[in-house]
Each structure stands twice: as C-alpha cells, then as structure tokens.
Amino acid sequence: MPLIRKPASPPETPAPDDRNIAEMLIEGSDDERWTAARRTTLLPEALPLLTTALSKERIARVREAIFTALAKMGSSESAAVIIPYLRSDDAAQRTAALDALRAMPGAAAVHLPGLLKDADADVRLLACEIARVLPADDASRLLEELIERELNPNVCAAAIEVLAETGTAASLKVLGQCATRFPEEPFLAFAIKTARDRIGSR
C-alpha cells in the first residue's frame, strides 16, 4: 500500500496584509493584483479602489476578479461602476461586464430602466439579457415597455427572446403589435412566432 498520508501542506500563498491591499491592487505584480482584487471587498474604501483598479487593469484574469468583487458587493453603486464597460469596444470587456451585472440582479435592476432607454442600441440590446435574471413579472413589464417604443429590430429581437422565457399571456398583445411594426423583418417574425408559441401554448 504505497499511498501514505501526508501532513497537510501549508498554503503556498499567504494572505496579504490588509494594509497592503490597496497598494498591491494598483502597483503589485499580476498575482498580487489578482489576490488584492479578491480581498478588496474587506476594506471600507473598496468601491473607489476597485473603480480605479478597473480603469487601469489590462490583465483579463485580474479584471475578472475585480468584476467579481464588484458583483459580490452587490450595491447599486458597484453596479454603476460596471455599467460603462457595457459600452466598451472590446467584446470581451462587454461580455465580462454583462456577466458581472447578471451576477448581481438586485443591484443591476436599479439601473435597468435607464439602460433599456440608453441612446446606444448595443447597450439596450445587452440590457435585455440583464432583464433575464430579474423576477419574471419585472422582466416582462420592462421588456414589454421597451418593445412598444423600440425602433431597432435587433433590440426588439433580444427583448423577445427573453420574453419567450419570462412572458405571460399578457405579453402576447405587445408581441403582436411588434410583428405589425416590422413586417419587412422575417427574422423578427420568426422570433415573435416562437415566443408566442411558447408563451401561449397553454
């Protein structure tokens, strides 16, 4: 029986001193910034620290840890720090921001009505996916309102896809109106039919 019990190996990465976290977060090595980002929420000044760090950080995994820290804080203020990254030219950053907001539905919900009215159609489109993590009634109400006023068929399609999951019979009227507003968009007609079938199947 050659396997033998080893004594517990000591942790190889001792936790940093809290006094150094702020310094490490901005000026440390990649590993130190990663570790500091994961511990920053312990500090009272976490939000301004993470805000600054996110604006400077270029390493993807450290950015991921900063987004997670902000999601863990779960406040309207920490969600507000993430939102500008929905406008990033970098698709990876937009996705990371979207994933982080989806991980903090209560906090993201506060900003959602504004995001769904954003001047940028890409932001409105991403905001539809944030709506998916809200309670069904809230998501459906917001998306139905969006569909009623939305002029961009791609945004409508994103909203309709979510509505196919969250919607109720009350959503069918809005879907029908949307179909008549965009008769020249066959993909939208298909999306609306799918959503109506799923919502109205019983």
Partner: peptide
Amino acid sequence: DESRRIAAE
C-alpha cells in the same frame, strides 16, 4: 451566477 464566479476564482 455570483456563487459560481466566486467558486471558479
């Protein structure tokens, strides 16, 4: 989603 992110890290 939040717990999965933290667990993965």
